[in-house]
Write a protein that binds this DNA or RNA. Sequence first.
DNA 1: CGCGGTATTGATACCAATCAAGAGTAGTGG
DNA 2: CCACTACTCTTGATTGGTATCAATACCGCG
Lengths: 234, 234
Amino acid sequence: MNTVPNPADLQHLDLFTDLPEAALAAIAREARVRKLPKGTVIFTQGRRAGFCHALIKGRVRISQADGTGAQLLVRFIGPGDMFGTMALFTDGRYPAEAVTVLDSVEVSWSEAALRNLMRVYPQIGLNIIGILGARIREVQERLREMSTQRVECRIANALLRLAERAGQPVAGGTAISFPVMRRDLAEMCGATLHTVSRVLTAWQKRKLLTTTRQHLTIRRMATLREIALHQLVE
Amino acid sequence: MNTVPNPADLQHLDLFTDLPEAALAAIAREARVRKLPKGTVIFTQGRRAGFCHALIKGRVRISQADGTGAQLLVRFIGPGDMFGTMALFTDGRYPAEAVTVLDSVEVSWSEAALRNLMRVYPQIGLNIIGILGARIREVQERLREMSTQRVECRIANALLRLAERAGQPVAGGTAISFPVMRRDLAEMCGATLHTVSRVLTAWQKRKLLTTTRQHLTIRRMATLREIALHQLVE
DNA sequence: CGCGGTATTGATACCAATCAAGAGTAGTGG
DNA sequence: CCACTACTCTTGATTGGTATCAATACCGCG
């Protein structure tokens, strides 16, 4: 379970882009690798954070609950993505919960190890800044969508983001490569699962996409883009 | 106009916390200081970014427009805050517009200067990571609010955030120290200015706050907190 | 087979946007 | 000094998009 990763796996992590070979080897020596079956809770909201995480394989669902039980789906983490790292540089507590939705392989580093590595290889710090910057952009974009657009647009945007980050070309469309429930989509775009269901069945009738339970394939990406952009849905 | 700042001014900037005296002096030498009257556009959305900015005095409004003209008020920048820096580490374009809402004093560094300083003083990089992390948290919190809470709660939360970052104790309450319009509040919490106006007058009748045009004083912070937390507003 | 989680679909209610009008306030310039 | 204009703010009437409530169907799995 607690093995050392192959440096080759590490070079695809966004955390470690533009680092020399030697660095990857050193980083690998400090790493902890774990195989995590689908459904594993990696960390829970509010727990003390001591590690920087990254995903080698699989998919992780990051979600945040408020006091009343309402949930926000913050993001799905895919292979190569760092996660749960922000906490180390703020108040030391995870602001959200992370659960695998597929069998996954995760790498992690203790806070001390990460800080040492950052000292030796300053590029890591620059990478983290870039990653956080990109995330702020994405979250702000979602915030703007939530403020100004209707549910249909927001659902379309959510699907486009999923396709972008986890789309697999298949015969006659793009399939999302992991199980997505109506509830997930709802929590991604601030709607109820009822509304999501209605919209998806309407789109299915229009041949924009096909869905079976938890599985989703986009058939007409272009039309979906139009719906996402335009306020109007002719 | 193009003077060198007093290092003492720099030590209160979140960008440069935990830096030695010598560093502040070096940083000051690279800086550009500008006095900017109220209403000055510091940068516009989409423009090529070449500087890292920080505010010494005054207040700056950061807002983002989508294609249709709808606006999101991203944040108000106060003394000590860095801004417009994310662009340097992502795609090199400002994702939002910055305008002074009070007479202000701004410091800025060219991208090259900043990168040099970061190389010599790695703490700056850590500071930036901390700042970006805190911002992601705040934006995510707003996103969750937008998804799950009603307008009244969201307006209450917006006011609390303003009070937190720009509240001045005055006789019988906390005043917001810069002009805030109904439209601003609306764009902060995804509502129309009409709704904001209605809610504020209702609260004024309940003595929760007092407003004159563009000026706002919170009288019962505790009650406002209750409204913000609870979904229910008895 | 029955059971728990997931998805569909209809009926109703209601929050907040939209539409519309006008009042207050600041600043400008003749 | 006052008319004039631009902007901010208030308030009412109406509409409509989504949530909510409620019931049922579907599917996988132990």
